[in-house]
């Protein structure tokens, strides 16, 4: 194949890879956006809790030699528990009139989770199981990584389950009610604190899956992952529109794709500059993001 064709194929392939990987950003973005939607608070410890859950699931892998799918489910469960602890420590008892306090508490929790992981593992990268990591689907001239396709599919399934929970169950109705009109929801007998706690557990579970997907896609886990995932999750949340789940999904995939495009054309050192510029463009010209609403609640 001539160099010309490679120059055409390579950027397209990069976008495809980026979009697949972007499904992980979408999962993280959903967590941020759901908590924001319900509580109007940003939980900066969310991505760290996701990675913490993935680390916790390593016990199932290392001690019980459990298959990858079981390890992923363990990550989701562990992260759900961590999510609940984050809620108790950083949000439950801090008055809602002090948003900065909850923000700083979640920053502290981010650092705490990171350091716990570092101390438990001495910062050593730990191998993480993957599914279909040696499968390459050849669509000449393009190809798709089997593990990324699986991650993409798993992420889509997780998002569909979440949407089902939100729109077809009593818990989902309660969650949306608290997100839209907390006072009215309380008057209707919906327990605000219970709903908030449930939101943290649900998003934590989703985050644990995302943490597991990151570990699976790289093949190893490192505490280095928490901070970049936090930044990417926030970017996705803002671009998608604060509080919008479809927005987080679309923005996650878009950010993943754009990231690879910028990297292909401008190099890895400039990649994040352009991703940040994209964020600024949205903040300036469309602050409500792709799907967010400008109107406020209550």
């Amino acid at each position: 194949m001539s160099d010309f064709w490679w120059d055409v194929i390579d950027p397209v392939q990069s976008v495809l890879d980026g979009m697949m990987f972007g499904s992980i950003y979408a999962l993280i973005g959903i967590g941020f956006t759901l908590i924001f939607g319900v509580m109007h608070r940003i939980n900066l410890a969310y991505a760290a809790a996701s990675i913490g859950g993935a680390y916790a699931s390593l016990a199932a892998f290392q001690l019980l030699s459990a298959p990858a799918i079981v390890v992923f489910l363990c990550a989701a469960a562990a992260s759900g528990v961590i999510g609940y602890l984050v809620y108790i420590c950083c949000f439950r008892f801090i008055p809602t009139v002090m948003p900065l306090a909850t923000l700083m508490a979640s920053v502290g929790m981010l650092i705490l989770i990171d350091e716990v992981v570092v101390h438990a593992t001495a910062g050593m990268p730990e191998p993480y199981p993957a599914m279909f990591d040696d499968v390459m689907i050849d669509l000449d001239p393009f190809w798709v990584r089997g593990d990324l396709l699986m991650i993409f599919a798993l992420s889509v399934v997780a998002m569909l389950i979440l949407l089902y929970v939100l729109y077809r169950t009593r818990l989902g109705i309660a969650t949306r009610a608290v997100a839209q009109q907390p006072s009215a929801a309380q008057l209707c007998g919906i327990g605000q604190e219970r709903t908030n706690a449930a939101t943290f557990v649900i998003t934590g579970t989703l985050g644990g899956l995302a943490g597991a997907m990151v570990g699976a896609s790289v093949g190893i886990l490192s505490p280095l992952l928490a901070l970049p995932l936090t930044v990417k999750g926030l970017i996705v949340t803002v671009i998608g529109g604060l509080g919008s789940i479809p927005g987080a999904i679309v923005a996650g995939i878009l950010v993943g794709g754009f990231e690879n495009v910028f990297q292909y054309f401008r190099g890895v050192t400039e990649r994040d500059i352009y991703v940040m510029l994209l964020l600024f463009v949205f903040l300036t010209f469309r602050p409500q993001g792709l799907f967010g609403r400008i109107s406020s609640r209550d």
């Binding site: 392939q13 990069s14 690879n260 890895v268």
Partner: peptide, 19 residues
């Protein structure tokens, strides 16, 4: 090929390498 310390996706860089 270049990447950053906390990168997780190396598909583009490795394609450059392969090419």
């Amino acid at each position: 090929s270049k990447w950053l310390l906390n990168d997780t996706n190396f598909t583009t860089q490795v394609r450059e390498m392969k090419r």
